[in-house]
Amino acid sequence: MSITITPAANERMRHFLAGTPTAAGVRFGVRRSGCSGFAYVVDLADAVGEGDSLVEVDGLPLIVDDKSLSLVDGTVIDFQRQGLNASFVFHNPNATGECGCGESFTVG
């Protein structure tokens, strides 16, 4: 499995982890949602559970559930600020389409 985290996203994730020292890492995956099928999930994880994979990306503990692995393999996670807005941005080679608002995606 290959996931890339840009320096900006890494810094942002480390900021969240520093605020919650008991967190096991950052959970990254997908859930069914939106008009296109899947939405990304980025959150702090309390623990690595059964059915989770723990990978270290540039020293950052990233936890991905086994159901999401094939859907996020190869994804580049970035963090961008545009005016007052700030968000994670995902470049996923598995996505074959996205909804107009960019909140959800489909796979082929």
Score class of each variant (00 low, 15 high):
residue 81 R to M: 01
residue 91 H to D: 15
residue 88 F to E: 00
residue 78 D to M: 00
residue 16 F to H: 15
residue 66 D to C: 07
residue 69 L to T: 06
residue 57 V to Y: 01
residue 106 T to E: 07
residue 6 T to P: 05
residue 107 V to L: 11
residue 104 S to Q: 11
residue 3 I to D: 01
residue 40 Y to P: 02
residue 42 V to G: 00
residue 82 Q to N: 13
residue 92 N to Q: 03
residue 50 E to G: 15
residue 52 D to M: 05
residue 21 P to M: 02
residue 78 D to C: 09
residue 53 S to Y: 10
residue 25 G to Y: 00
residue 66 D to R: 08
residue 105 F to W: 09
residue 101 C to M: 02
residue 19 G to V: 06
residue 48 V to I: 15
residue 96 T to N: 02
residue 20 T to V: 08
residue 77 I to W: 01
residue 16 F to L: 13
residue 17 L to M: 15
residue 68 S to Y: 07
residue 86 A to K: 11
residue 90 F to V: 04
residue 61 P to V: 11
residue 33 S to F: 13
residue 107 V to W: 06
residue 96 T to M: 07
residue 1 M to D: 04
residue 17 L to K: 10
residue 82 Q to K: 15
residue 14 R to M: 14
residue 82 Q to W: 08
residue 15 H to K: 12
residue 43 D to S: 13
residue 50 E to P: 14
residue 88 F to P: 12
residue 40 Y to R: 04
residue 4 T to F: 00
residue 15 H to Q: 15
residue 43 D to H: 02
residue 80 Q to F: 00
residue 82 Q to C: 11
residue 43 D to M: 12
residue 27 R to S: 06
residue 82 Q to G: 15
residue 83 G to E: 03
residue 90 F to L: 09
residue 58 D to L: 05
residue 44 L to K: 13
residue 3 I to R: 03
residue 45 A to M: 09
residue 47 A to R: 14
residue 83 G to Y: 04
residue 75 T to A: 02
residue 24 A to R: 03
residue 76 V to H: 12
residue 76 V to S: 12
residue 98 E to A: 14
residue 103 E to Y: 13
residue 45 A to C: 08
residue 74 G to I: 02
residue 21 P to E: 06
residue 66 D to W: 00
residue 19 G to R: 08
residue 13 M to E: 00
residue 17 L to A: 12
residue 11 E to F: 09
residue 2 S to N: 12
residue 85 N to R: 13
residue 72 V to N: 00
residue 104 S to H: 10
residue 78 D to I: 05
residue 57 V to K: 02
residue 90 F to N: 01
residue 12 R to C: 02
residue 103 E to P: 01
residue 61 P to I: 04
residue 90 F to M: 04
residue 83 G to M: 09
residue 58 D to A: 12
residue 40 Y to W: 01
residue 37 G to W: 03
residue 28 F to S: 06
residue 21 P to V: 04
residue 19 G to D: 02
residue 56 E to Y: 09
residue 70 S to D: 12
residue 10 N to S: 14
residue 85 N to Q: 07
residue 9 A to D: 04
residue 81 R to H: 05
residue 101 C to T: 13
residue 7 P to Q: 05
residue 25 G to K: 00
residue 15 H to I: 14
residue 65 D to E: 12
residue 74 G to A: 10
residue 2 S to Y: 04
residue 22 T to Y: 07
residue 104 S to K: 03
residue 89 V to R: 06
residue 60 L to A: 08
residue 83 G to P: 08
residue 90 F to I: 13
residue 97 G to T: 06
residue 64 V to R: 07
residue 99 C to I: 08
